[in-house]
Amino acid sequence: MLLSWHHPEWTNELLAEEFLPQCSASLAACWHLLKGNGLATVREILPRFAPTLMLMARQTTRYQRVAARLATQAAILQAILAMHRMDIAGRERYCLEAIRCSRAAADERLECAALMYLGYTYSFCYRPRQPRKAIAVFEEALRVLGTHSWLLRSDVAMGLAEAYAQCGDERQALHFMTVAQDAFPTRPELDPSFAYAECGLECALPVGGKDVPRAERSLLQLWLSTARLAGYGAEPRHPLGLRTRQQRVNDLSGRRRPPDRRAGSLRPLCTPGG
Rank of each mutant, 00 (worst) to 15 (best):
A180L: 04
H6C: 10
T52P: 12
A163R: 03
V137E: 01
E111A: 02
E198A: 10
R65K: 14
L229S: 08
M56D: 02
D260P: 01
D191N: 09
E108V: 15
A136K: 13
A25W: 14
S265H: 09
D211S: 11
A215S: 13
M54K: 14
E139Q: 15
M158L: 15
A134P: 04
A71L: 01
I76V: 08
V144G: 00
F176L: 04
L174G: 00
M83D: 08
W31H: 14
L110A: 04
M158K: 15
D182I: 12
G254R: 07
H84K: 13
C199H: 08
C125D: 07
G274V: 06
R129C: 15
E17R: 08
A74I: 02
I76N: 03
C101A: 01
A165M: 00
R85A: 15
K133S: 14
L118C: 05
L3D: 11
V249P: 05
N37L: 12
S26P: 12
S26D: 11
M116C: 05
R132P: 11
M1S: 11
I88N: 06
H84D: 08
T60I: 13
R257K: 11
Y117F: 07
A104R: 04
P268I: 06
K133Q: 14
T121A: 05
C95D: 04
I76D: 02
L160V: 00
A197L: 00
L3F: 12
A57P: 04
L39V: 12
P206S: 02
R91P: 01
G90F: 00
E111S: 02
Q221E: 15
Y117C: 02
E17S: 09
P206D: 05
V212C: 10
G90V: 01
T121Q: 05
A161T: 03
P236D: 01
R187P: 09
W5L: 12
A105Y: 00
G209E: 05
